[in-house]
Simulated assay, not measured.
Amino acid sequence: MSETDELRATVDMLASRVRALEDHLEIMQLVAQYGPAVDSGSGDAAASLWTDGGTFDAVPQLSMRGREDISGMVHGSGHQSLISNGCGHVLTVPHITVAGDEATGRSYALNIRWDAEADRFWVARVSANTWRWVRTPEGWRIRERVNANLDGTGEHRAMLAPPETGTPSRPPEGR
């Protein structure tokens, strides 16, 4: 192999690695935007993190289909009550697997609430999350998020297990 060929191979390898790093960083930034968007009551900003037909299942409470449903949840009375009483949605850094223009991942989410009488915050909920992201002309967006309480249910814990096929598991329908 000539020096020129070696240089081309090195540049190609570095370009591939930079793109992988950029993909991971963009996806992590996408996930990091969710908590501040919903906690500020910015439904349109939260919904814009998804694709037009993206889904968000908060198992077993709520199943949202499309940006309008997600924005509606943020503007709804239940969510507005949470944030007006003091609430933070904290998502951990997801484990991400990128395959071309699609990616999958898993992470935790914590719902932390303010207790004015006790003058403290408390963790109201810890949940498992599985994610499916897709590269769009606007950048990476969420295609699917499943959020299930870690309430001892085996299927919910299994969502956090390293995927055997490279795809995070999801709880059975109706769970």
Results as ranks from 00 to 15, higher is better:
L7P: 02
R8F: 05
A9N: 12
D12E: 06
D12Q: 03
D12C: 02
D12V: 03
M13C: 09
L14S: 11
L14W: 11
S16T: 05
V18P: 01
V18A: 07
R19F: 00
L21Y: 04
E22D: 15
E26L: 10
E26R: 11
I27V: 06
I27G: 04
L30Q: 04
Q33S: 13
D39V: 09
D39Y: 10
S42R: 06
G43P: 08
G43L: 09
D44S: 10
D44E: 13
A46G: 07
T51N: 09
D52H: 03
F56M: 07
D57M: 04
D57N: 09
A58P: 00
V59K: 00
V59C: 05
L62E: 06
S63A: 14
R67V: 04
R67E: 02
G72V: 03
V74T: 06
V74K: 00
V74S: 01
H75P: 11
G76L: 11
H79L: 08
H79P: 09
L82S: 14
I83C: 13
G86K: 10
G86F: 14
G88W: 01
G88Y: 03
V93L: 13
P94G: 01
P94R: 02
T97G: 13
A99Y: 07
G100V: 09
A103P: 08
T104K: 03
G105Q: 01
S107E: 04
L110P: 07
N111W: 01
R113N: 14
W114S: 12
W114K: 09
D115M: 13
A116V: 08
A116P: 05
D119K: 11
D119C: 09
W122R: 12
V123T: 15
A124L: 12
V126I: 15
N129T: 00
N129I: 01
T130A: 15
W131Y: 09
R132H: 14
R132M: 08
V134T: 01
R135A: 00
P137W: 01
G139A: 10
E144N: 06
R145N: 11
N147S: 06
A148D: 02
D151T: 06
